[in-house]
Each structure stands twice: as C-alpha cells, then as structure tokens.
Amino acid sequence: AEEIWQQSVIGDYLARFKNDRVKALKAMEMTWNNMEKKEKLMWIKKAAED
C-alpha cells in the first residue's frame, strides 16, 4: 500500500524538492508515518484490488 501511495505522490514530492530524490523520499516516509489509519486504509484497499 505504501508503494502505491508513493508512486502516486512521488512527482509532487520531487517537484517540491527540486528533484532531490533523497529529501523527497525522506519527506514521503515521514508523511506516510504521520498519516491517519483511515487515510492509509484507502491505499491498502487500492493495493488489494491490484
């Protein structure tokens, strides 16, 4: 689920960090860890469908 979420937001994060992939990935990891369980559930369901 986290991978699907990352694939959907990586472009936004890379743009925000001027294509600094290391910073973008760290920010994504922090965002994922801070997400509410119900927000993650949507992505977990999406992962299950694929």
Score class of each variant (00 low, 15 high):
residue 34 N to Y: 06
residue 42 M to W: 14
residue 31 T to N: 06
residue 34 N to I: 05
residue 3 E to N: 10
residue 47 A to V: 06
residue 5 W to E: 01
residue 27 A to Y: 06
residue 50 D to N: 15
residue 17 F to W: 07
residue 13 Y to E: 01
residue 5 W to I: 00
residue 7 Q to H: 08
residue 12 D to Y: 09
residue 2 E to N: 09
residue 47 A to T: 04
residue 14 L to E: 02
residue 14 L to N: 02
residue 3 E to V: 13
residue 6 Q to D: 01
residue 19 N to F: 11
residue 4 I to Y: 15
residue 14 L to P: 00
residue 19 N to R: 04
residue 34 N to A: 11
residue 30 M to W: 14
residue 14 L to H: 02
residue 7 Q to G: 05
residue 9 V to K: 04
residue 28 M to W: 00
residue 49 E to F: 08
residue 28 M to Y: 01
residue 26 K to I: 11
residue 39 E to N: 04
residue 39 E to K: 04
residue 46 K to P: 04
residue 1 A to R: 02
residue 14 L to K: 02
residue 38 K to Y: 11
residue 13 Y to H: 02
residue 4 I to Q: 07
residue 14 L to F: 04
residue 37 K to V: 15
residue 9 V to A: 04
residue 2 E to A: 11
residue 33 N to Y: 08
residue 27 A to I: 05
residue 26 K to R: 12
residue 12 D to N: 08
residue 6 Q to N: 06
residue 49 E to H: 09
residue 20 D to Y: 02
residue 45 K to M: 11
residue 27 A to G: 04
residue 15 A to E: 12
residue 46 K to N: 05
residue 34 N to F: 06
residue 18 K to Y: 12
residue 9 V to L: 04
residue 32 W to Y: 01
residue 10 I to K: 04
residue 31 T to R: 08
residue 32 W to C: 01
residue 6 Q to V: 09
residue 49 E to T: 12
residue 17 F to I: 01
residue 20 D to N: 08
residue 39 E to L: 06
residue 7 Q to I: 09
residue 10 I to G: 03
residue 44 I to L: 12
residue 43 W to D: 02
residue 29 E to I: 10
residue 10 I to M: 11
residue 50 D to F: 15
residue 26 K to C: 07
residue 37 K to Q: 15
residue 19 N to C: 14
residue 29 E to T: 09
residue 44 I to A: 11
residue 17 F to V: 02
residue 38 K to M: 10
residue 36 E to S: 15
residue 28 M to F: 01
residue 46 K to M: 13
residue 17 F to M: 05
residue 45 K to C: 12
residue 39 E to V: 06
residue 24 A to Q: 01
residue 17 F to S: 03
residue 43 W to R: 02
residue 19 N to M: 12
residue 23 K to W: 03
residue 45 K to I: 13
residue 41 L to D: 15
residue 41 L to G: 06
residue 40 K to N: 02
residue 15 A to Q: 10
residue 9 V to R: 03
residue 20 D to A: 02
residue 1 A to M: 07
residue 8 S to M: 08
residue 25 L to A: 08
residue 23 K to N: 07
residue 3 E to A: 14
residue 45 K to F: 06
residue 7 Q to N: 11
residue 41 L to C: 14
residue 50 D to Y: 14
residue 35 M to K: 02
residue 26 K to A: 14
residue 6 Q to E: 04
residue 46 K to G: 04
residue 46 K to C: 09
residue 11 G to C: 15
residue 47 A to H: 06
residue 25 L to T: 09
residue 20 D to F: 02
residue 29 E to D: 07
residue 26 K to D: 10
residue 25 L to Q: 10
residue 29 E to W: 08
residue 4 I to G: 04
residue 6 Q to S: 09
residue 3 E to F: 13
residue 30 M to E: 13
residue 22 V to K: 10
residue 16 R to H: 06
residue 25 L to D: 04
residue 18 K to H: 13
residue 47 A to F: 11
residue 38 K to V: 10
residue 22 V to E: 14
residue 6 Q to I: 12
residue 4 I to L: 15
residue 49 E to W: 07
residue 39 E to Q: 06
residue 17 F to K: 01
residue 45 K to W: 07
residue 17 F to E: 03
residue 42 M to I: 15
residue 9 V to E: 02
residue 47 A to K: 03
residue 34 N to C: 09
residue 43 W to G: 02
residue 48 A to R: 11
residue 21 R to I: 12
residue 36 E to V: 04
residue 2 E to S: 10
residue 27 A to F: 08
residue 18 K to I: 05
residue 24 A to C: 03
residue 12 D to C: 13
residue 37 K to T: 15
residue 19 N to V: 02
